[in-house]
Amino acid sequence: MIGRLDLDARQQSVAARGWWRSHKWWLLRRTSQIAAMAVFMLGPWAGIWLVRGNFASSDVLGVLPLTDPYILLQSLAAGHGLALTALVGAGLIVALYLIAGGRAYCSWVCPVNVVTDSAHWLREKTGLTRDRKLDRRTRVVILAATLLAAFLTGRIAWEFVNPVSMMQRGLITGVGLGWGLVLAVFLLDLFVARRAWCSHLCPVGAFYGVVGRASLTRVAATRRAACTDCAACFNICPEPHVIAPALKGKGSPVIRSGDCLNCGACIDSCPVDVFRMTHRFAGVEEGAAPARRRAVTPRRAPAAGPAR
């Protein structure tokens, strides 16, 4: 039943542009995720201390403090005064994601993303279609709820259940019952709803989504005139609703929604190179008139270009 390694959504691109170009961003992002975990694990597991701590707060080479701004926000809601080191660390992280794209955290750093992507892959391969529809805004509600709970309990509330931190800690300092939660997320994504955790429930992603509304690095459908309506990007995208305004709208081709993970899956999957990893001020590329359509059969007539 499980056939090819890659998802059906990439097939057209693989046929048109080859395997490597169809997996470029996917490979880069997995490399980044593994590297991010590895530098934290090198210390405790191999005694090579490039970075100390974990994603909640860390100390890079003994000079650079980094702190998770969402956890710090909860700490603030819980009534703890700000400490300078943590504040500087959180500021640096916010600045980083204002440049790299808010939810780049989710797709380029967070280890749970590997788990949920695997669940999604297995889901597609085994043809599991059961999808209990969740509202994408649920995560914002949960984000608000965690801050409320932090305020009421005087504790950093979400950290009592956060599977994201559980998994990071599990990898960095050893295994514990926290893995049960990670497994729960995997099963949720596999059996209950499509992309349930990362795209609907996780308040960490929702927080970075807020940062991402103003972030610099963005994906844009700069050559949208070439679009053949094959829907590969919509099929592969974890947040498909972010694509339409940029690809089919008349305004800016930039995907501006904070929900976009900057994962580059649309770039990988597009057989005619519509998308680019660029910045939020990018415009439509001129001279990108309806292009060569190698080995691609459009399902409908091509979308109207700017000429109409």
Binding site: G43, R52, G53, N54, S57, S58, D59, T67, A150, T173
Partner: peptide
């Protein structure tokens, strides 16, 4: 509990492996 972000920096700073998360 309102201040600790559970980063484990204290754990890794301890030379005797006394602390754990």
């Amino acid at each position: 509990l309102s201040a600790c972000v559970r980063c484990g920096l204290c754990v890794e700073a301890c030379p005797y492996d006394t602390l754990s998360l």
